[in-house]
């Protein structure tokens, strides 16, 4: 039982990463390949307004609440995906 329980969060984090990458690429009007998950979203020039929209997108797709402060504290695709995933795990447990 323990194996799927461990890989589920990892799969969800990956799904979140892909979702966030697609949204960021859309807002920046660039391709998904151009998004490095380790780089800060501000550095990509992602407007703070679109960062707010990104919160809304994640909320709608993953049925969770994403406070604005989360994007400030975790401002790369990877860290944000991990943070949202951790919130989802916590809510599920």
């Amino acid at each position: 039982m323990s194996e799927p329980a461990e890989s589920a969060p990892a799969a969800q984090t990956k799904e979140l990463e892909e979702f966030i990458t697609a949204k960021v690429a859309h807002y920046l009007q660039t391709s998904q390949d151009a998004i490095d998950p380790e780089l800060s979203l501000t550095e990509y020039g992602l407007d703070s307004l679109y960062a707010v929209s990104l919160c809304g997108d994640i909320e709608d797709a993953f049925h969770t609440s994403v406070p604005l402060t989360l994007i400030w504290d975790y401002d790369t695709v990877r860290s944000l995906a991990a943070a949202v995933s951790a919130n989802l795990q916590e809510a599920a447990s």
């Binding site: 800060s40 501000t42 550095e43 992602l46 400030w72």
Partner: peptide, 17 residues
């Protein structure tokens, strides 16, 4: 540059590209 961008984004809500 990265630090300044993050700070201004947080403090003022302005993305300084």
């Amino acid at each position: 540059v990265r630090t300044v961008q993050r700070h201004i984004s947080r403090a003022m809500g302005v993305s300084l590209g």
